[in-house]
């Protein structure tokens, strides 16, 4: 279950890196990519939540869930701004990406460590 979540979130991160290129160039990111990115991330986070609620393992990955959830709030904010043609604050996009990457690193460290 955690592996599935990691795969989904990793794919979301790859698409996120593709989109941040557009944001840094002050161009509109393709909405198709944004939707797939968001959907993959949401599914990954949902699976992590289900895991945390149902597993009997000691480490329930609530910490990773919290990091990804924080990143998701930033993502929703960015998407709602972008779709209404409001300027996306570049720093929010960068922080959103950094939190997501940190979360991926964090969960990988705990799974492989």
């Amino acid at each position: 279950m955690v592996l599935t979540a990691i795969i989904l979130i990793s794919l979301a991160v790859i698409l996120g890196l593709y989109m941040i290129k557009f944001v840094l160039q002050k161009k509109n990111p393709p909405k198709g990519v944004a939707i797939v990115h968001g959907t993959l991330a949401a599914l990954g986070i949902l699976i992590l939540l289900i895991y945390a609620l149902t597993t009997s393992e000691h480490h329930k990955h609530w910490d990773s869930f919290a990091i990804f959830f924080t990143a998701a709030i930033g993502g929703i904010y960015l998407f709602s701004k972008d779709i209404r043609h409001k300027n996306i604050p570049v720093w929010v996009a960068v922080v959103h990406g950094a939190i997501g990457l940190t979360g991926l690193g964090w969960i990988l460290y705990h799974v492989t460590g």
Binding site: P30, K31, G32, V33, A34, I35
Partner: peptide, 12 residues
Amino acid sequence: VAKQYLKDLPGK
């Protein structure tokens, strides 16, 4: 509508 947005994928 969400499906229509997917027309904005690279290479499509």
